[in-house]
Structures are given as C-alpha cells and as structure tokens.
Amino acid sequence: MKTVKLNLQEEAARQKLRQIAVGFLTDRLEAIAPERTRFQFDRQTLSLTVYALEEATAAQLEVIAEALQEFLSRLPLVGVRQIELEFLAPDEVTVLWQQGFAVTYEAPVAAIARPERRGQTVRRRGTYPGSALVARARHWLTTPETWQQAGRLGTRAVRDPKGALVQTGVFLQAKFGETLDWIDTFPWAERYHQLWESQRRRHRRNYVKALIEDLAVFFVVALVVLSGINAISMAPISLSRLPAGNHDTTLSSQRYRCAFLPGVNKTNYLCLSQGMGYRQVTSILGGEGKPMVAPTPVRPLADFANPKAQPPRETTNIQKQPVVVSWSQGNFTVNATFAGDRLIRKAYRES
C-alpha cells in the first residue's frame, strides 16, 4: 500500500495533519479538549498547543504527550526537523507541560512547473470523492490493449455466438467465485470496529450535532422506505371513488355510448330504458319501427315525438293506450311498448 506523505509547506497537507491529530486526541477527552488544538508550522518546526481540562493531572498529560510523540514520529512528514508539544491550562496562560523532539528530516520535492491552462478550471487529482475510481476507469478506456481485446471478443462473438456465450458464462462464474472468496476473507469484524470507533469519536466531539445528523439520516431513510412501499403496493385508481369534478364522464354517458353505432342489436337493446321518447329509441335502433297493430287514425305513430301537436279532446284517452312497435335486423328482434310517446316495456328475441 502506497504511503501518502504530508508536505507541510502545502495548506492541504496541514489541514490533513490537523484532522489526523485531532482524531487521535479525541480518544483522550477525559483530560484535554482536542477541538481547541492549535497548529503552527514555521521554519521547519511544527508546534502543537493542546488545552488541558481543569481536572487533568500531570501524569495524564505525560502519558498523552508520550503517545502523541510516538504517533507523530510515525507520520511521513515532509519538511519538518523539530516538533514542539505544549499543554496549556484552561486560562490559556499557564504552561502545564512542554516538550520538543527531533524527527527525521525529508526535504520536499520541488513541484514541476506546468503551463497554465487558460479558460479551463484545473482540478487537482484526489480533491473529490471517487477521483481514484474515475482515474482508473479513464486509464482503462484509453488503453490500446482494451480496444484490441474488445475487437477480438467482438470478432469471436460474430463467428461463434454459442462459444462466446459459453465463455461469458465461464467468466461470470469465475468472477462470482472471486466475489464469494472476497466476502469470506474480508475482515468484517475489524471494519465494524473501525466504524464503531469512528462514530464514537464523532459523538464525543459534538454530541448534539451528531445526534441531529443521526436523526436526519434515519428520517430520510424511513421516508425513502415508506415511499417505496407505497409505490409498490399502490392500489389501482378507481374512477368511482374520485370526486365528481375530477374526471369527465361526458363520452361515457348513455347518450353518446348508445347512439354511436345505431342498429338493432343486444348492445343497443340494453341502452333502452323506461321513459325514453319514441324519437330517441329510433335514433338508437337506427330507424322507424313496425307497429304490431295499426296506428289509430287520430294520431299517427310518427307524431309521438311532437308533444306540441294537440289532438282533439275526444281522442285524449285513446292516445294513451299502449302501442307495441317492433324492430328487426337479421335474426334479432326488439319489441318496445309505448304509452303516450314514452317507453314503458321492452323485450327481444333471437331466432
């Protein structure tokens, strides 16, 4: 595994060192306040000022200083000859412990001057998450061997599709076996312990902030899970359950559904309902019907649809007598009984 060296002449390296040292000191919260630690780098000398708590003892500070000295000695620091440690009391004036030690000096490598790119934003490698993965993918795609191998595989797949499928199956089985081996050999317990210690340090630094972050993450995860469950188990939309103003029933009404294809058939027969006028029935069945008895001389059958026509007074009772009208088409017959231009009964027959 490649060791990343910290060149303290760069601001990014100093910030990284501060994060590492504060994380190390977080495990000693009983004696010091690691979040107040100050760092200063000047003339190849690194100075660390740590603030102790009121209940801290000299023995505790000595143990912390020795552990910190050993920890800093192992870090790959570049451009550092001397490290000075200083422990101050909460009043920021009284010095409780002070110590300095030398480290192996490693001279920084001069940066290679590169021409400035105008009109483009230059981003340093490793400054965003996933940069290493992106760099590996880009290198793999730009390598000539990758395209040569892809060409050979394409030619083989065209010449022998069945063999290509077999080779693909063998390759997937091998990768699946490697994945299982990786799962079996991965140090899950060590990784879990590292994550647990990381969360403990985070809670020790700022318990309220960490608790709020945990609750926010839990709320977002619960919201996503509940939304997914509702989306999967969503009941189909039923128009009958919607309010009246949320869907249009104009084209599904009886007026449009029944007069769309006039004719004598069972579909139009089911559209006939009591109280319909004679003209409406003829528009549904597609024409004039044939009376089963002769129409009265007082008022013809076609005058049923004209209520404004006033028959003579002496024939009013005769007009209200039921009249049976028949429509036929093929082997299907519809009989309708009218009384006063209104449908009162219907029947059909298939021969």
Rank of each mutant, 00 (worst) to 15 (best):
A113P: 07
F71I: 05
Q99L: 01
Y105H: 10
V103I: 12
K162E: 15
V78I: 15
A102F: 08
Q99G: 02
R156P: 05
V95W: 02
T127K: 03
L68H: 06
L165T: 01
G79M: 11
I112T: 10
L68R: 06
P144G: 07
L165R: 09
R152G: 00
G100A: 15
Q69V: 06
L96H: 00
L68C: 02
R114S: 06
A89W: 04
P76A: 14
A89H: 15
A89C: 01
H139T: 06
G163P: 07
L77Y: 00
L141R: 14
R74G: 12
A132L: 15
E84H: 14
Q99Y: 11
W140E: 07
V122E: 08
A157H: 09
K162S: 12
G119W: 11
P115Y: 00
F71D: 14
A137E: 08
E116A: 03
L133G: 04
R74M: 07
E84M: 11
Q69H: 12
W147T: 08
E106C: 01
P161R: 09
R136A: 15
G100I: 00
E106H: 12
Y128R: 13
L172P: 00
E70Y: 04
V158S: 09
Q120W: 09
E106G: 01
V170Q: 15
A111I: 03
L153H: 14
